[in-house]
Computed example of a mutant assay.
Amino acid sequence: MRRPGARHSASDRPGHATLTRQAGWFAVIGVASTAGQALLYWGLRHWSPPLVANLASLGVVTVLNTEANRRLTFRGSPVRAVQAHLAAGVLFVLAYLVTSGAVLLFRHYRPTASPARETLVLVPSFALVTVVRFTLLRLVVVGGHPR
């Protein structure tokens, strides 16, 4: 119970706990997604071209990341899985263009670079895609407002 005349703190605002929980899950899922995509890309690059490895790793991680965010970050949301995955699918196209552009540009300047170096160059792109995916999902799932 609050004392009379006590000041409100940031944690007393409605939705603050929800946003804090969402940010926490986003960080965990985002780090796991970025690491998973990097490892998958690196593994695939040993026997496939960069654009194929990027497409496959991005496709797998997009589905897993979207579902993890839907179930953990935005749990209890009335948004159906199909709607969340469709929103993520729209972002997938943009993400593929950004990450493919990054790897192609790197390969242009370093044509003999190893898959490991390509992966290191792509990690910031993967992380950026994860942040944008979270933002888009947050807009779709909770309308950009904490519940």
Rank of each mutant, 00 (worst) to 15 (best):
V28H: 02
Q37T: 15
V132R: 09
D12M: 02
W47E: 12
T99F: 08
L104E: 11
L128Y: 14
L51P: 03
G24Y: 04
G76R: 01
T135M: 11
R7M: 11
V141E: 15
A10F: 12
R80G: 14
L58E: 11
R147E: 11
G36V: 10
G89T: 04
T119E: 08
Q37P: 04
P146E: 04
A113H: 01
S77D: 06
A10D: 09
H85D: 07
A10S: 10
S125C: 14
T112H: 13
V121A: 15
A87H: 00
P111S: 13
L97V: 15
V61C: 12
A27V: 13
T18V: 15
P146D: 04
S77M: 05
N54W: 03
D12L: 06
L40I: 07
G24S: 09
R138N: 10
A53E: 02
E67D: 08
M1Q: 10
R7N: 05
Y96E: 12
R2W: 07
L39M: 09
L39T: 06
P14E: 09
L122P: 00
A68R: 04
P146M: 00
T66K: 06
G36Q: 07
A38V: 08
L136E: 04
T73E: 05
G143F: 01
Y96H: 12
R7F: 13
R107V: 13
H16I: 02
Q22E: 08
G59Y: 09
S114K: 05
L44N: 05
V131W: 03
A127M: 09
P146G: 10
A35R: 08
A38S: 15
L58C: 10
V141G: 01
T62F: 14
A127K: 07
G76I: 01
R110N: 14
S77K: 01
F74Q: 00
S48Q: 13
R3K: 13
G36P: 01
L120S: 06
V52I: 15
V129M: 00
P146L: 05
L94P: 06
T119A: 10
R45M: 07
V90A: 12
L97Q: 09
R107C: 13
F126A: 13
A81Y: 15
R13Y: 12
S11K: 12
T73D: 02
A6H: 05
L64R: 06
V90N: 06
L72F: 05
H8P: 07
A127Y: 00
P111G: 11
R107S: 15
V121F: 07
A56E: 03
A38L: 08
V121T: 12
S33V: 07
Q37I: 13
W47R: 09
P115Y: 06
S77C: 01
F26V: 00
A32F: 02
V121M: 11
S100E: 04
H145M: 12
R7P: 03
L120A: 13
A6Y: 04
G24P: 07
R45E: 04
T66V: 07
A6G: 00
P49F: 06
V123E: 09
I29D: 01
R13N: 09
R13E: 14
H16Y: 15
A95E: 13
R138V: 02
L137Q: 09
Q83F: 13
F134H: 01
L139I: 03
L139G: 14
L104Y: 02
V140T: 11
S11R: 15
V131Q: 03
R110C: 08
R107I: 11
H46C: 03
G5N: 11
A84D: 01
R133M: 12
R3A: 14
Q22V: 02
H8F: 15
Q22G: 00
